[in-house]
């Protein structure tokens, strides 16, 4: 692949690809797709949330899973970082702790694809952190 140094190079490459399938632009409805929230506060970032986030962004796309990956603040489980929250359509969210790449892979393969729980669930009466309410 030739180096892409400017937007012009990038545009040229995109135009060449246009005949292929590679220019999918996502427009997902969060209601009926999988939602993955990665906790990205200081505690999460320090424990490796960046790698986990990159893994989910890349692998969910590569494995053709319609998913929205977003970030959230500290959920209060700093001891278990990196933590992620996964919400399958129509189900309650599940929070997983100590998510390394191996566990992230299991979460995609088992929980997201088949609904089978994997290790590392943080068992709590849990409600989604709502940034707007949290401020008050």
């Amino acid at each position: 692949m030739s180096k892409i140094l400017s937007l012009a190079d990038l545009k040229k490459k995109r135009d060449e690809l246009k005949s292929g399938l590679d220019i999918r632009i996502k427009a997902l409805n969060p209601e009926n797709s999988v939602q993955v929230k990665v906790a990205m506060a200081t505690c999460g970032i320090a424990s490796g949330a960046k790698t986990v986030m990159e893994f989910f962004l890349e692998q969910l796309d590569r494995r053709n899973i319609a998913a929205v990956v977003t970030q959230t603040g500290c959920m209060g489980y700093c001891y278990a970082e990196p933590t992620i929250e996964v919400k399958l359509p129509g189900q309650d969210p599940v929070v997983y702790g100590f998510v390394d790449l191996k566990r992230a892979d299991q979460i995609i393969e088992k929980y997201i694809k088949t609904g089978e729980f994997v290790d590392g669930i943080i068992p709590v009466n849990y409600e989604t952190v709502d940034l707007n309410n949290k401020e008050e």
Binding site: I4, S6, L7, L17, I25, K26, A27, L57
Partner: peptide, 14 residues
């Protein structure tokens, strides 16, 4: 929107 994985990867390498 820039939300396409291949585009984002290209932007990253740019």
């Amino acid at each position: 929107t820039l939300n396409s994985r291949s585009l984002l990867e290209d932007l990253g390498s740019m």
